[in-house]
Write a protein that binds this DNA or RNA. Structure first.
Lengths: 177, 177, 177, 177
DNA sequence: GATGAATGAGTCTTCATTCAT
DNA sequence: AATGAATGAAGACTCATTCAT
């Protein structure tokens, strides 16, 4: 096979990342074996290792990718947030996050919680997440000035807390191992 | 050998649970091996298995124990919350949780996040956590009636979100694996 | 099982090393899998890894052990070599090495050649072997003064060369892989 | 595409063999992957397999090629050896072998030791080497008659032993794996 | 009651080789 | 002729758990 185009390569990587998301949603990071991700994405073991150097790197990319994508989705809402009330903003943000996260076969909010747990162990991943949340908090700061009892800090905590609530307070969907 | 008193047994169990907390804080649930917990608590492998049927059960107990203990600490604050403003309550609650969580060698907020991740794949643990949070939300409900923009749901989300922020936005403290 | 005595531990290590010798004689270092050594020594995988941290370490110990043991055997001959002619010494040394090396199921001279090849890649192993040969050469130096055309350097080269000849010029005994 | 001339083919094969020599000098046979040889010779995977049926064959050719080339170099020295003393012959032979072996990026004496180790597990390679050494020994036989304490057998052992000494007693030059 | 050596299934990863283009 | 992406079997190693002493 001749050289793959960058676009084709990106498609393959995305396939693998989506398979990882599905597996991690189902069983968490540790209980997901590479073999499961490999089966899920329909490629061979060697092929996956052609696109990612190992499980850790794949997991890190999977976690990071979801943050980056959500970031892009959130930008327009932050742009027009100055015309909203705090309550309206929170409602819209929560709805957007839910819409963004719920997907065929997995929910990125569940993945995100596994990601937080990973970040506590992996300093690189933690740095990425810290930057991501710092960016959001910074974007909220000027708005929060007008939203009396809600500070930027508090708004961010609310969004994070809602993610936990949504993920944990849902009925369980799968068995361990 | 003479039978151990219930008190002695309880001491042993607590020793093991605390060792588990320290290990989980450091490396997360999956990367913590039973051997590490065994070394940390200073007992033998056989001894640990005398007190807990397996790793999953020990982890579940470790997670649950922290919730139960925090529950007890939170009760008095909830009792006198009707005399506080929402802001004062939130400040006090956050301070109490921090005081309760920060310990010699570990932070239970970090452990809790690993616990959420576990709960997503362990229905029993999820049920325990759901009950715990439902209880708190129920206790907050009558108070929230007076705290205009803050509903019980929102207050709980704030407390959860603060836990994430505190754990993730702290500078990393440990190496991977 | 209660603690093993140091003696018992040493016996186990020797079992494993001898299994490694047999396997390496048969297939060389690289083509010998840990599973083969494990099967050969009759222990479980975990047990072997209880005594050696990994394949590399086991191979290094197996190589080193044969040198150390031969060293001990060679000492008495070196002690009484001053009463021998060079030719007599060479004959006796070669015979001693052959006696020492030929064993049930393997020949340590073959193992030694695999060891040289390994040493070219593993600086630690190379250092051990260099020391071993330097010691022998030093012991030969005072004797060689009397053995006119044979220097210590030359005598050592002869012993090494004979090992290669004995191992390579024998009829082949096994298949690859 | 146009057929390659035999000369071009031979150039390609030599390129690959030299790449193999460099890699084997650095890491030994087993730790050298085909990918490394492929990268080193600057060709594609498919191209290398056009010239050699597989790794084993390539390694065998690489080993053999060095023997054949050395053979040719040795012939003139053997031709005029009858006019030399044993000591002079040995000195010249050692110098010739060193000159022949030391090359830009590798030393064929190191490659030869890896080759002996390979020969112990590859009967075909062993046969080739046995023939090579037998030829040399045969050439030395008539000369040795005049070189009193040195038999042909002993002279060959010396040359082999010197190769080991030169390779092993040099300071290590590379990292593991 | 307590020990800790032993087990072995399961995990991640590599790499010689092929073949569609 | 040449490419290089893909394959998948095989390898090294881990670790929760047990049980003889």
């Amino acid at each position: 096979m001749p050289k793959l185009s960058d676009e084709q390569k990106e498609t393959r990587r995305r396939q693998i990342v989506e398979a990882a998301w599905r597996c991690i949603d189902r069983k968490g990071v540790a209980a997901t074996s590479m073999d499961e991700i490999i089966a899920e994405c329909g490629m061979s073991a060697g092929a996956v290792y052609l696109y990612f150097p190992g499980k850790d790197a794949l997991v890190a990319v999977a976690m990071t990718a979801s943050f980056v994508a959500l970031s892009a989705e959130l930008a327009p809402l932050l742009g027009r947030a100055q015309n909203l009330t705090a309550e309206a903003f929170l409602t819209e943000a929560a709805a957007l996050i839910e819409r963004f996260s719920k997907r065929e076969g997995y929910d990125l909010r569940r993945v995100a919680i596994h990601g937080w747990s990973q970040a506590l162990i992996d300093p690189e991943l933690q740095a990425i997440q810290r930057d991501f949340y710092a960016t959001i908090e910074a974007a909220l700061a000027p708005l929060a000035a007008r939203w009396k009892p809600f500070s930027a800090d508090l708004l961010l905590a609310l969004l994070l807390g809602n993610t936990v609530k949504a993920a944990l307070l849902d009925r369980p969907r799968q068995r361990r191992r």
